[in-house]
Design a binder for these strands. Structure first.
Length: 818
RNA sequence: GCGGGCGUGGUGAAAUUGGUAGACACGUCAGACUUAGGAUCUGAUGGCGCAAGUCAUGGGGGUUCAAGUCCCUUCGCCCGCACCA
């Protein structure tokens, strides 16, 4: 055995073999620690650019290193893609499978408020703990590429990218009503509000006008939808993103109102002859502007004030429509010249479209409800339904619509828009539900926004040479009551000079949201130590795109959407050469406690991965997480089932004693090739639970043998190694190999050898099972029929019956119809 | 309300996509063994029946030689979006 270039660190192989001879029991503790150290010392999983090899980039969402440590849910997806990574490596791919830490965020800051420990310190400790835990599970991450988003060497480039957004006009500061969490004292993006509540703490979100940095993600709305077509994302993800972006095509139309035009957005301009009134949002600028001309001014005021007090949640709570007519001013329908009343009502949203609508109660249920409540006329303009009962929202030929009469929807839409264009009161328009990304957070533990405000020059970007703009030291991490960031208190840091005129200036004190760093981390993995650029073109061109990205469904409209957008922006800047970052996106299900509840500290039902590793070993843990159930579905933790997997691993260990120089029979080879083919396919299709079943079936087969041909055991170790790398590596070494199994060639399953030459066919009479017959594979139909009819059971049952026909499904079934 | 998914033994689940329902495990029962180890091994295990059989994939109906799988209908659960004009 050559000591050099082997994975034994110079230790004498014979010495090890002596040790092994003494070990009768499966001692996972020593085995696993030993191999983890060897893998790490010899950098077995290191990924380098190698243009002669085809690359494969696998990505799992990097964790936020919380104080409680790794959750048993994390390893589910890490193990799954680790299995894929290991298999791909054995198949000759140059695999990049990196890991890092999404390390900025609120919990570290809250912890600092409570304990006074600086977020940088607690984060560092947490990362060390996470690393230890991840390493104890034997993942094949290239730890040399580990990144941390809170590292100035990393966030330097996050800031650099922000400056790009600013340079291209996509980052802008605006005073807009934002979602404000009164408990976290922080503004939230729309994506972070769930059911009107703060995604993080559950407090009801308020509306607050605040100056915020915004990023114009809406400019990419069309592309974010259209480019999904080419991607291999699971459908759930695609449809959720499409729904979230919410594209609707229609038209903007101007109605005359007082001395100006009241503009509305509608998806059905062809129903304009059915408009019987209009509605503006209470916040619509015309309401305040024309207040003095309304005859019922007091009533209008009261309604506006009432609406302002309500949260979004309260406004959408009731089913009943409320509102007030703006008496004294009527609007004029440009299609037919009709004068119609105008209302304000909070069922019209200020943030969508133009904040005003034309109401067509006959064909929109919401308008219908409002019309009924306020006794307004309902004019049907599309055929169908029963307007006396409810609005007719389906299609139908146009009626009562002058030049549109008789047309279908498509023609009617075109004609209505043409007419509006010709007469100068409207045009086609596409609208989105997606809002621009609120990018400011009034917090400490995030990337400082590299902008400076000068009285004379306005907002100025920091020059690139001043990056990274590091976080200043502060002692008080509490957000201020006025809603400003803790950074505002670091006056030395805040007061600076204008990069343009050199005059007095102040730094931006808000920081970026925690979604910033994760929006481009997959690019940094390609070239993590580069201090000249965020990643070299060479590295990016070689490694990108990510071939397979797995992560949680909860990030579909957050991280996944943001990072696709961010990447597209970098593409437009010429910084990356692919339009999309991820080729394939899959998603794992949650791991729940044994009773089906979510694991949480407060419920006291959290399973600690450390304990599982300590008591059963990493291999058992990994195999169990794969075996627990379908990968994309929620699964319940069960220690009993874990024991079953533990037994399985122990069995593999003890089978070693039976390995011999004997030759496999045809039947043995069949079992072996069947298993190879199944495991291979089931890894690719993410059916990890049944892949493990296949391995179990094969191990059961081996157990029943008196002697196990070495070839059969070696194949087992190879196809087992993606799931249980430690024991595979250990037994591989014990077979006498002095090179790691990691780079062994993945076995090829032979379909011919895997096929049975004798098949069992079910014999049915009128579809009911009556028995089985064994036949050579692909026996001619006649023989099958003959043998089936000879079956005692069959002969007895069909006695005295007419055989109508016999259906033979080759190698499967004989069905005798009487 | 709209969109997506699901419903199979005592339990977690399989089922080559229309072809022997319950693979693989857990649990349970019976037996063997003992270097007492979260032991191991062997066998049984959907219900009813001594058996031949028969009933079983949420319920009802249909298509088919054949349905967990396709169609209609109904009930129940989960997830996402939600007054988006």
């Amino acid at each position: 055995m050559s000591a050099a270039n082997t994975h034994y660190n110079g230790k004498d192989f014979a010495e090890w073999q002596k040790e092994w001879a003494l070990e009768d029991r499966y001692n996972f503790r020593t085995i696993e620690k030993k191999w983890q150290k060897i893998w790490e010392d010899e950098k077995v999983y290191r990924a380098e650019v190698d243009k002669n090899k085809e690359k494969f980039y696998l990505l799992v969402e990097f964790p936020y290193p919380s104080g409680v440590g790794l959750h048993v849910g994390h390893p589910r997806s890490y193990t799954a893609l680790d299995a894929v990574a290991r298999k791909k490596r054995m198949q000759g791919y140059n695999v990049l499978y990196p890991m890092g830490f999404d390390a900025f965020g609120l919990p570290a800051e809250n912890y600092a408020v409570k304990t006074g420990i600086h977020p940088a310190v607690s984060t560092k400790q947490n990362i060390a703990n996470y690393k230890r835990q991840l390493k104890s599970l034997g993942f094949s991450f290239d730890w040399d590429r580990c990144i941390e988003t809170c590292d100035p060497e990393y966030y330097k480039w996050t800031q650099w990218m922000f400056l790009k957004f600013f340079e291209k006009g996509l980052a802008y500061k605006a005073k807009i009503p934002i979602n404000w969490c009164p408990s976290c004292k922080v503004g939230l993006a729309n994506e972070e509000v769930v059911d009107g509540k703060c995604e993080r703490c559950g407090a009801e979100v308020e509306r607050k006008d605040k100056e915020q940095w915004m990023i114009a993600i809406t400019k990419y709305a069309d592309r974010l939808i259209d480019d999904l077509d080419e991607l291999n994302f699971i459908d759930r993800v695609k449809t959720q993103q499409i729904n979230w972006i919410g594209r609707s095509q229609g038209a903007e139309l101007d109605f005359d109102f007082a001395d100006e035009k009241l503009r509305v957005f509608t998806t059905r301009p062809d129903t304009a002859f059915g408009v019987t009134y209009m509605v503006m949002a209470p916040e619509h600028p015309f309401v305040a502007k024309y207040m003095d001309r309304f005859e019922n001014k007091d009533e209008v005021w009261a309604y506006v004030a009432e609406a302002a007090k309500k949260s979004d949640l309260q406004r959408t709570a009731g089913d009943e429509k409320t509102g007030v007519e703006l008496k004294g001013i009527k609007a004029r329908n440009p299609y037919n010249g009709q004068m119609i009343p105008v209302f304000i009502s909070d069922y019209v949203l200020t943030g969508y479209g133009t904040g005003a609508i034309m109401a067509v109660p006959a064909h929109d249920q919401r308008d219908y409800d409002f019309a009924k409540a306020f006794n307004l006329p309902i004019v049907q303009v599309l055929e169908g339904g029963d307007i006396s009962q409810q609005a007719w929202e389906e299609d139908g030929a146009h009626i009562n619509s002058e030049f549109l009469n008789g047309m279908n929807k498509e023609d009617g839409m075109r004609a209505a828009i043409d007419y509006a264009v010709k007469n100068g009161f409207g045009q086609a328009k596409v609208n989105f539900k997606l809002r621009d990304w609120v990018f400011s957070r009034q917090r400490y533990w995030g990337e400082p926004i590299p902008m400076v405000y000068c009285e004379h020059c306005g907002w100025q970007p920091l020059p690139e040479s001043e990056l990274p703009l590091e976080l200043p030291e502060v002692t008080d991490f509490l957000p201020n009551d006025d809603g400003s960031s803790p950074l505002a208190k670091a006056t030395d840091w805040v007061n600076t000079v204008c990069p343009k005129c050199g005059g007095k200036a102040r730094r931006e004190t808000d920081v970026m949201p925690n979604w910033a760093g994760s929006s481009w981390y997959f690019l940094r993995y390609c070239d993590p130590h580069n201090d000249k650029e965020f990643a070299s073109k060479e590295a990016l061109d070689y490694w990108m795109n990510v071939d397979w990205y797995n992560g949680g469904m909860e990030h579909t409209t957050l991280h996944l959407l943001y990072s696709r957008f961010w990447h597209k922006f970098l593409y437009d800047c010429g910084c990356v050469s692919t339009k999309e970052p991820y080729k394939k996106r899959t998603s794992h299900g949650m791991i729940l406690a044994a009773n089906g509840e979510k694991m949480s500290k407060s419920r006291g039902n959290v399973v600690n991965p450390d304990e599982i590793v300590e008591n059963f070993g990493a291999d058992t843990f990994r195999l169990y997480e794969m075996f627990i159930g379908p990968f994309d579905q929620a699964a319940m933790w069960s220690e009993e089932s874990l024991m079953g997997v533990y037994r399985f691993v122990g069995k593999i260990y003890s089978l070693f004693k039976k390995v011999s120089k004997s030759k496999p029979t045809e039947k043995d080879l069949r079992a072996m090739h069947k298993c190879i083919l199944e495991v291979d396919e089931r890894i690719e299709t993410m059916k990890f639970n049944t892949a493990v079943s296949s391995l179990m079936t094969y191990v059961n087969y081996l157990s029943s043998m008196d002697e196990i041909p070495q070839e059969m055991y070696e194949v087992l170790l190879k196809i087992l190694s993606p799931f249980a790398p430690h024991i595979a590596e250990e037994m591989w070494a014990r077979l006498g190999y002095d090179k790691t199994i990691v780079n062994e060639k993945w076995p090829e399953g032979d379909r011919k050898l895997a096929e049975d030459n004798v098949v069992t066919l079910a014999v049915q009479i009128c579809g009911k099972m009556r028995g089985t017959i064994e036949m050579p594979k692909d026996s001619p139909k006649e023989e099958v029929e003959k043998k089936a009819l000879q079956l005692e059971n069959v002969a007895r049952q069909i006695e005295g019956c007419n055989i109508k026909k016999i259906i033979v499904v080759p190698n499967r079934i004989v069905n005798i119809v009487v």
